[in-house]
Design a protein around this nucleic acid. Structure first.
Lengths: 233, 233
DNA sequence: GTACTTACTAACGTATACGTTATTTCCCGA
DNA sequence: TCGGGAAATAACGTATACGTTAGTAAGTAC
């Protein structure tokens, strides 16, 4: 009523993104940034207030996030940020191994021009540089870029969408374990071997090397989760 | 008002499944059964009337179906059953090849007891019998059961969910092409080889044989789509 | 006759109201 | 004091109302 309560603050007119999209992005960001930690529960109403909108767009965004495995919807208890345990991480990495090695195969089969692969090459170079600078965050970002580029370039949109979804599920765990693991020296080298095979059109090798790359990452990650007894991420 | 218009017909009390779930199942069934053919468009309101409920649960069901790639949601035009063209089928089968061959590998690695594999064995036997009886529908159903069982038994729930989703996307095309292709003699034999490798714990062979199995099916299917110039399925 | 503008219509996006149901708390009895 | 039941509360599921926007058609001007 008073001047301090600006009711009807609705986005009049020029909103390019719907409230559902905004709710989706913001909730997802909060989960990935650990603002909503694993296990965090909140009622639809509270999330809606948090985001300054009504329950409806929040509900629709939550349905999507449920599909992506980031939240669980429990009647009368609201949404819950699903914790990822070691077993989940195993599942996630097995799917990533499967989909990404197929992506490497598909990309290699397409015999892409050298410049098409530039994003992957640049990401790999950045990984080497970041490791020399001892900048783990930069390394992780570059590693993320490599895998994202591989997926984006493979030409299979369904595969890309699924791989991105499942990669997001492991994002928090990768961030947490980043400083608990040994220096990731092997990755850039493996990336270069994948790139070489792709450039040569040797799709079997591209697939097999990437398969081993992800398997190794999986072993490392689940090993750390067990070693440090990390209950959930 | 009159006795012929039973207002408040709402599911009072004992509804075990929510309207959203019912909407989801029914719309999906109609799509897979071709009651809603590829390209079919309908407004939210019309679908809601069709199912005898309001727009809200229909909307929420449609959001899920959009995520599964079965419908597209176009503002002011309602939902559209997404047609699957040859290129989509290639994408679908590449993903299936990837995920299912990983499933075969995972299952083989687990060294399952022989009786665990019984659903897959029974399905394979049924395929042989159906082919002898010249019963293509029974063959397709048994083939479907084999692949579903493989996915269910592999132990990776994320992989299973994704594989099921993408398999549904190809369902209509498989049904349509069932009678356009040569008799599927090879499949049961390939299934038996996968089973043998799984039982022996030879996960590389299980993976590779299943990979080739799906690749072959993919070639056949996309070949038929091109040969018969099937525009969309 | 064609093109542009304007007005009307219809569908969706969002908010909100309402009824149902699950959960929790309190009270009573054993 | 503990357990069970009932009532109250709170959250969700669903329906519906409302406002915005896009699409369409008609009319006018050039």
């Amino acid at each position: 009523m008073s001047a301090s309560t600006p009711r009807r603050l609705r986005q009049t007119g020029r909103s390019r993104t719907s409230l559902v999209e905004r709710a989706y992005e913001q909730i997802k960001q909060r989960i990935l940034n650990n603002d909503y930690s694993p296990g965090y529960q909140a009622l639809e109403k509270d999330v809606a207030e948090d985001l300054g909108m009504s329950r409806t767009p929040v509900r629709e965004a939550l349905i999507q996030l449920k599909h992506e495995g980031l939240v669980e919807l429990i009647p009368r208890r609201g949404m819950k940020v699903v914790p990822v345990v070691a077993e989940d991480m195993q599942e996630i990495y097995d799917v990533l191994t499967s989909l990404e090695s197929m992506a490497a195969e598909l990309l290699a089969r397409r015999q892409p021009d050298s410049d098409v692969l530039e994003p992957m090459k640049a990401a790999t170079r950045d990984m080497v540089d970041a490791l020399e600078d001892n900048d783990l965050d930069a390394w992780a970002a570059a590693d993320e870029r490599f895998h994202r580029a591989l997926i984006d370039l493979c030409g299979n949109r369904r595969l890309a969408s699924m791989a991105n979804t499942v990669r997001d599920q492991g994002y928090r765990a990768r961030m947490v374990t980043l400083r608990l693991r040994d220096k990731p020296f092997a990755s850039a080298d493996e990336h270069e071997r994948v790139l070489k095979a792709i450039e040569e059109g040797d799709w079997q090798t591209a697939r097999d090397v990437h398969y081993e790359h992800r398997k190794r990452a999986s072993r490392e990650l689940t090993g750390i989760l067990r070693k440090y007894r990390l209950p959930q991420l």
